[in-house]
């Protein structure tokens, strides 16, 4: 990539929309600051989980008892797939004149994200009803649900945001403000997949072998 016209994280509009490219620098950097503060929040939840999952089991279920590798792999592939399809949506936003392709990729992203959230809700149902592991049972379980549900709520919020932007695309068309909002949602969505890397690694995979 030639460096001169790369001004902010995520896909840059560049010469396909020079005015939007100028406007993006400031708002995307501001959003990047928010994302980094969100990373600090998740990091603290990971630290709490690391402590509680070791010393806070209170004789109840251990990390291993909550691990279903197949389920964790399916969720991981769903979220990774949705991160990739959002990348395709970003390319359609940048290079395609029409809205059809953009909306199609966004719709696919939405479906993958919605199935992910549904799968997580199913996981919680199994943990509480079959594994007898409700959040109030031990410090470990409280930390476990707090970490996974905070991520799940972020994904659900991203889905709501995506639906609102889809309505705005239909209502206003691809005006500059809508483009900039989509670019920030793309960063948010990619970042949630990065947080999930930490969750599937330390909660599920390490939980299975510790």
């Amino acid at each position: 990539m030639s460096g001169a016209d790369t001004r902010h994280p995520g896909l840059n509009l560049g010469q396909t929309d020079a005015g939007g490219h100028d406007a993006a620098e400031e708002v995307v950097f501001g959003f990047w600051v928010f994302l980094m503060s969100d990373m600090v929040l998740f990091a603290i939840l990971f630290a709490t989980y690391a402590t509680m999952s070791t010393h806070g089991q209170a004789g109840g279920p251990a990390p291993l008892d909550l691990v279903d590798l197949g389920s964790a792999l399916a969720e991981t592939l769903l979220l990774l797939g949705s991160s990739f399809t959002f990348g395709m949506a970003s390319l359609a936003l940048k290079y395609r004149e029409g809205r059809t392709r953009l909306v199609a990729w966004l719709a696919l992203t939405f479906v993958l994200g919605a199935v992910f959230v549904g799968w997580e809700v199913h996981d919680v149902h199994v943990w509480i009803t079959q594994d007898d592991a409700p959040p109030q049972r031990s410090g470990f379980l409280s930390a476990h649900y707090l970490l996974t549900a905070t991520h799940g709520l972020h994904v659900a919020a991203g889905l709501l945001w995506m639906a609102v932007i889809a309505v705005q695309i239909g209502w206003f068309g691809l005006i500059r403000e809508v483009k900039l909002r989509l670019m920030r949602l793309a960063l948010f969505w990619h970042m949630l997949d990065i947080v999930w890397i930490g969750i599937f690694t330390f909660v599920f995979l390490y939980g299975a072998v510790r």
Binding site: G3, P9, S83, L187, I194, I197, F202, Y206
Partner: peptide, 29 residues
């Protein structure tokens, strides 16, 4: 396992920062 899985996770985080979020070592970044 913690070391191996941690390194694989770190590698994937770097990959996604690089290829999805377009973070690299360019001056403008």
């Amino acid at each position: 396992a913690l070391v191996v899985l941690g390194l694989l996770a770190l590698a994937q985080i770097v990959v996604q920062f690089r290829y999805f979020l377009h973070i690299d070592l360019q001056k403008s970044h």
